[in-house]
Design a binder for these strands. Structure first.
Lengths: 332, 332
DNA sequence: CTGTTAGCGCTTTCAG
DNA sequence: CTGAAAGCGCTAACAG
């Protein structure tokens, strides 16, 4: 039955011959109401198809049962997985999720976060692109807030994958296969996870005097991987570490077009282990970022914050090295 | 500057030495306020970092500047693209988007739609899985509502891809390449778009007496495509039409493992043209569903509804046949 | 145990 | 042009 105009608490009260407060108490399961009366109110409420207006409740209670998620790009598979994990975890606790896609417009991030925060109980910043200073300045006004994939923060718990360790595993894997000259497709400039990757590379170079790593600028998507093919081939390397799986796949496809065989002539590794990584040919060696879990854990941190937990711990998840067919021994 | 407790309109009024109404008028750009006074209010508001509480506004205005989107699976690339197109279009008009992932739980759809509707100005049902009767019954109580990828409805504008035509193009493509015995991996049972595909198949059979189509049950994801490999090979066909790209990719990968060459020994076509379809090897022949546009158009329909447009037209977009390397002539 | 009253923060008549 | 007052729909003291 469709109710053109929804019933209000006043109408229910009148229909049941009681006061507003009684209806409110009954609807909120307050046990200090006479059983028979409560039953009558429930019946009337059911007949009228009544349930409390969430907006009015939000205004008076000061909570909306909603959190906002600010994402740099809804088209990025890793963020999609994070969002999915987060959304389902939140839904399990009866929370709604408001999404805000900044479409990689760094300047929009703070605006979106601040704006969405006002209609929600908290905001989750997913891999914000803004500078460390901007982030630090923004956080206090957003509380409660949790941040995904940035270094630990003073004013917010953090949930992140350990990109440094993941990259270290990838390099070790390649080095173990005899590769000594490797290209790194470095992705977007300000990325925090990019800095972590680079740190791992520096450490590897320090540990192995005979390891050369050539950094080649790139973007973070398919096309930038494909576009980098000439530079990669010119760099005379035997293996390449792509910024992420998307870049790796773009490169894979471009080198295939040139008749170069992977991994016989060139090894290529990605990062993230997006759902499609196993379906390329050859399947992609990568470091698996547990995106869905990251999303779930971000919700859990938010949930703890909302519950008033004083010190919510930050969490770091180590990516797992996934060796598939796109990497192999250095060509002789 | 972080404001622990946000300023209220009352505080601004007091600080500026005016009444609430004046502040309200100024903030809403009401021109009937003395210029000097308005300027003073604006200054004070800026100093206090004031902006109206959206919740309170929503309650009194009866609109939230938010719409809800109910999706069967946030993990499905096509739905992700639809969501992205929708979210950006809505954001461009200053609207927020609340997401609800039913996780393919058909029974949840109505509940989610009804619940989210109450905190928003309208809801967009993305490819709802529920029966036609359930949908028809649900729609009136949700108004304004728009439906994606279902047949035209009495109580809501509809935005859909023409799966029948898309499938017809695919069959024609295969038939033209000499294929006469083709498998169809049929996907999930109740799907409206599945019925449209099947209709195209029936028509093709009617048009070509020598065309055989073997229907093989499957799911809608990678794994179900891979799982179907034995049945496909046993069916003795020269080409297969997968329910969607995911299924096609799963099958592609499974047949590759068995050393079967595509398209020389077997042609495989997908549906949707998800972003990864061009990166499989061979790249996937498919029917391109313009998902991002569908999302944008769904928003436009909602926007029109919100603006009070009486008869918002439904729109149908014809998928484009994309011929890539996974289909070819029938093996001799 | 139940009803009356006072707000939550804002917009909008209605007077002046 | 500006202020006072009512009210959006609900919850939570506060009395009885």
């Amino acid at each position: 039955m469709a109710h053109t105009a929804r019933a209000t608490i006043t109408q229910v009260a009148r229909a049941a011959g009681v006061s507003l407060s009684t209806v409110s108490r009954v609807m909120n399961g307050n046990p200090t109401v006479d059983a028979a009366l409560a039953e009558r109110v429930r019946t009337v409420a059911a007949e009228l198809g009544y349930s409390a207006n969430p907006l009015a409740r939000s205004l008076v209670l000061g909570r909306t049962q909603t959190v906002a998620v600010v994402i740099p790009d809804l088209g990025n598979p890793t963020f999609q997985s994070i969002l999915r994990g987060l959304s389902r975890a939140a839904a399990d606790e009866g929370f709604h999720v408001l999404i805000a896609d900044s479409a990689e417009q760094v300047a929009e991030e703070a605006t979106l976060a601040t704006a969405t925060r006002r209609r929600t109980d908290g905001v989750i910043l997913c891999a914000p692109r803004m500078s460390a200073d901007d982030l630090a300045a923004l956080l206090p006004g957003l509380s409660p807030v949790v941040v995904i994939n940035r270094p630990p923060q003073a004013d917010a718990p953090t949930v992140a994958a350990d990109y440094r360790t993941g990259m270290a595993q990838l390099v070790a894997h390649l080095y173990g296969h005899g590769h000594r000259r490797v290209a790194f497709l470095s992705g977007v400039a300000g990325s925090a996870s990019g800095a972590a990757r680079r740190r791992a590379l520096d450490e590897a170079r320090a540990a192995h005097g005979d390891l050369e790593i050539v950094e080649i600028a790139s973007g973070v998507d398919f096309d930038s991987g494909a576009d980098a093919v000439d530079e990669v081939l010119a760099a005379d390397v035997t293996a390449v570490l792509a910024f992420n799986d998307l870049v790796a796949m773009g490169l894979l496809s471009a080198v295939a077009d040139r008749g170069i065989r992977v991994p016989e002539q060139l090894s290529i590794a990605g990062f993230d282990d997006i759902p499609f990584a196993r379906y390329t040919s050859p399947p992609l060696t990568t470091a698996a970022v547990p995106a869905v879990e990251l999303g779930r854990e971000a919700w859990e941190a938010m949930s703890a914050l909302l519950a008033g937990t004083d010190a919510v711990p930050s969490v770091v998840r180590g990516p797992a090295l996934i060796v598939r067919g796109s990497t192999g021994p250095r060509p002789v």
